[in-house]
């Protein structure tokens, strides 16, 4: 780990002042990704700004029927919050599909959004990586890429965003509230993370001098028809090869509204609004779900080791939508998939 200076801030305004004025600096909350990356010398901040004492630790009603989650609420606190469990079970389920109890106890909700989009080449400073050293090259594209992206990748980066929580937040149309030197602004979840394009070193659209303060959940929680289906190389404590957050609002036998987001397949949580629209007014059938999968994966591209993910994603989408329609959400304890 490189040496760095340390400062603890007491207010959001102070945090913003520090990040704007400091040399290359990073906020630290749970630290579960940052400290790990610092040990690998991938992140080398000159200054670490401790935001753990900021008053962003509550989950509150928004007044519009939704919930406002403070950025410093831990993943555990969010997953087991009775309001989230009952009104947004998709979010609770996705959080519990990720990491381990120890990591969820430490990791903050805001930090979950800001964990790096990454792959094993990014972590290995002995290799080249456009995300770590812009312009150096991407050995994953012609290398070992079993865990890599099949959607929205660029010739510069095929890494994936590993969060489960963010896949659910994308499906739920959460809003990220941030504060910077110019004040507050809201970022729709869909626009928070970015695709790699020619700048894979930048994961999100959060400005360098901004801080996440809250995540707002809209009132619609899809608490009846939902599932978070995560497929991975071992049953627990592994990143998704493919995951699917599916949520349906039913009107009798017809689908009134569908939400669908994928994890493990792209540089960001992958939501396809056009594919969701195919289900509006339709019946929940295998045929209709297959059409959605085809739409989502129309431009999917494999890079060799990860070619299997395209078919896996196709099947996962159909299975997840079927689970949501049948009101049989995937258990995060009993991993049998039915």
């Amino acid at each position: 780990m490189n040496r760095f200076s340390y400062v603890r801030v007491a207010s959001v305004a102070e945090a913003v002042r520090e990040i704007a004025s400091a040399p290359p600096a990073r906020f630290i909350a749970g630290g579960t990704n940052l400290v790990d990356l610092m040990k690998y010398n991938v992140e080398r901040p000159e200054r670490v700004i401790d935001i753990t004492r900021l008053p962003l630790t509550a989950i509150e009603e928004t007044g519009e029927g939704g919930l406002r989650i403070g950025a410093l609420v831990t993943n555990t606190e969010a997953a087991y919050d009775p309001r989230i469990e009952s009104r947004y079970p998709l979010l609770s389920s996705a959080i519990l599909a990720g990491a381990s109890p120890q990591l969820r106890n430490a990791a903050s909700v805001g930090g979950n959004l800001l964990q790096r989009t990454r792959c094993y080449y990014f972590y290995d400073v002995a290799t080249l990586c456009n995300k770590r050293e812009p312009g150096s090259g991407c050995p994953a594209i012609d290398g070992i890429n079993r865990i890599h992206a099949i959607l929205g990748a660029s010739p510069h980066c095929i890494a994936t965003h590993p969060s489960d929580m963010c896949v659910a937040l994308a499906a739920l149309e959460a809003v990220v509230r941030v504060t910077g030197p110019q004040g507050e602004r809201n970022i729709p979840f869909q626009d928070f993370h970015r695709l790699p394009g020619g700048m894979p070193e930048i994961d999100t659209n959060l400005a360098r001098d901004e801080i996440i303060t809250y995540i707002d959940l809209p009132s619609k929680g899809f608490a009846q028809n939902y599932t978070y289906l995560k497929l991975r190389d071992r049953l627990s404590y592994a990143f998704a090869l493919v995951s699917v957050a599916a949520a349906l609002e039913m009107d009798g036998e017809q689908i009134k509204e569908a939400r669908l987001a994928l994890g493990g397949v792209a540089h960001k949580p992958w939501r396809d609004i056009a594919a969701e629209a195919l289900l509006r007014g339709r019946e929940p059938s295998a045929k209709n779900f297959a059409a959605v999968a085809s739409k989502v994966l129309a431009d999917a591209k494999g890079y060799g080791s990860n070619d299997f993910k395209i078919d896996l994603a196709r099947r996962a989408i159909v299975r997840a939508l079927s689970q949501a329609a049948a009101r049989t959400p995937q258990s995060q304890t009993d991993k049998r998939i039915t």
């Binding site: 630290i28 630290g31 579960t32 400290v35 670490v48």
Partner: peptide
């Protein structure tokens, strides 16, 4: 030493955490 194995688990304010990923100063 990377938060993957759990050998460093301790109880911090009664909650289990990976002590290898915590800066003590925080």
């Amino acid at each position: 030493d990377q938060g993957q194995c759990g050998a460093c688990t301790v109880l911090l304010d009664r909650k289990r955490v990976n002590s290898c990923l915590m800066l003590a100063v925080v």
